[in-house]
Design a protein around this nucleic acid. Structure first.
Lengths: 262, 262
DNA sequence: TACAAACGTCTCTTGTAAGAGACAATCGCT
DNA sequence: AGCGATTGTCTCTTACAAGAGACGTTTGTA
């Protein structure tokens, strides 16, 4: 990611690869495992996070001892451990909205047969927090936990509702405005979309992330005016106006049920 | 000054005074939040993990930025964050046994009306990985993720099946042999219990953790002979012989379905 | 059976992060 | 308003962890 270490201090040009804090190594490792989605050898892990092997071994050992990571079956690969699962469950327990949102999403996809998702802002990025597959043959939804540029999604437009232009600009990088197929979005258009979405209380995007789907999203409020999450349906791009309208209606009902006020 | 008593601290077996590694601070913080089960102010957190305030602020900031922790509603308390939830889901996804075990447990408690649990070893300690409440009025089961001394439980006897005396001794501290009500267990008896449990393929304990319940447990194998988890039912201590037998039968069926071989 | 590559452990050095503590700003009492 | 306790931020020092790298061992493949 961007981030950097402060170029800061004068004197002596620092070549790139200086020492990294152990804590950051941990964060990088977790994030890396999250993207690979599978157990990985420690050597490869070291390469993957660009850390020295010796350091990686030490850090991994600590994490395994603590139960945040586990050695996978064969013996020399690591992946997430039980502790992370337990902490994750704690999070769910402490978070009504997530708990109920998961249920609504599951229910919704069973009811409509379409892929349904619960989305939230996660350190400034759009994140699919829970998704339920739907019954259509090929639809592959992006993996849970995947982070996607805000401007690519309908939910993104809702999640930023209520922010002013400066805030929005701060949350969107240049790259985010380039769609997967290479098209460019204009920041101005994005800002307008957000305002519209806010006013109408929903957002529909067609063929943004890929050419075959349409995304219907509605906001979930944690307090009047504060958008905490969105629920969305991913449907074929050629879904009829009528069905789209019906689905949107359903979605709004569900979201209203989740919202605390607003 | 405060102090004067329980150093409290925790998990990292650490002598008092000196500097602590940032990584360990993180582990302590997570563990502490897991035991409190609620958002907590940073100052209190610092006290709780026995860390300097300045350090705690820095560490917490990192973790919040990374999304492992979140500032809770009011603004100056922290608790687990979405990232931990996502990592936890990754763990579940990569772990067939857990995923299916959760379902079986849910099903079992619905079917029998009794509290049902899935248990595993977690860094050498007995851990309730998932539990489903049952329909009885008062039964309060211990919280998920709670770590309990192995000798206090039926599952503990099964989880250690196949270990020799030395291994067992290493996993059990002196304190573990003292029951909540003050009674002492003998290590020898415990070892015998384990052998018996292994031979019969189940274990029943009565009034061990508390005076009102009986615990029926059976092993789940990840490979022939290797006990990876246990499923158990927590029932009133006065449950009839007959019903107990029936429940045990059910339990064994379920567990067999989960096991990979054995 | 030999050779190269990856694994896991150790040692030693030095850059740096953990911690002590000072500070201003709030909060919460009475 | 007055006082003590708490909060969040900052600075500076030095104890110590991150990293380079060497070593012996275990792959696997030619």
């Amino acid at each position: 990611m961007q981030d950097g270490n402060a170029p800061a201090v004068s004197v002596g040009q620092k070549t790139g690869g200086s020492r990294e804090k152990g804590l950051n190594r941990v964060l990088e490792i977790l994030e890396f495992l999250h993207t690979t989605q599978r157990a990985i050898g420690i050597g490869d892990l070291a390469k993957g996070v660009n850390a020295p092997r010796s350091t990686t071994y030490t850090v991994v050992r600590s994490l395994v001892e603590a139960g945040l990571l586990e050695m996978a079956g064969d013996g020399n690969r690591v992946y997430f451990g039980k502790k992370l699962y337990l902490y994750g469950m704690d999070y769910v327990r402490g978070n009504d909205l997530l708990r109920r949102g998961r249920q609504e999403v599951d229910h919704l996809s069973r009811e409509t047969g379409e892929t349904s998702e619960l989305c939230m802002l996660q350190s400034g990025r759009y994140t699919i927090v829970h998704s339920s597959p739907g019954t259509r043959p090929f639809r592959i939804s992006s993996a849970t936990g995947l982070q996607i540029p805000l401007p690519w999604t309908a939910s993104g437009r809702l999640l930023l509702a209520g922010m002013d232009r400066a805030d929005i600009e701060a949350m969107v990088s240049e790259d985010d405005l380039t769609l997967p197929d290479g098209r460019r979005l204009l920041l101005d258009d994005f800002v307008t979309d957000i305002a519209t979405a806010r006013a109408t209380g929903y957002c529909v995007t067609s063929g943004l992330v890929d050419a075959y789907t349409k995304c219907l999203a509605v906001p979930v409020f944690s307090a009047p005016g504060k958008v905490e999450a969105t629920m969305c349906l991913v449907v074929p791009i050629d879904t009829s106006e009528e069905r789209t309208g019906n689905l949107l209606g359903l979605l709004r009902d569900r979201a209203a049920r989740l919202s605390i006020g607003g």
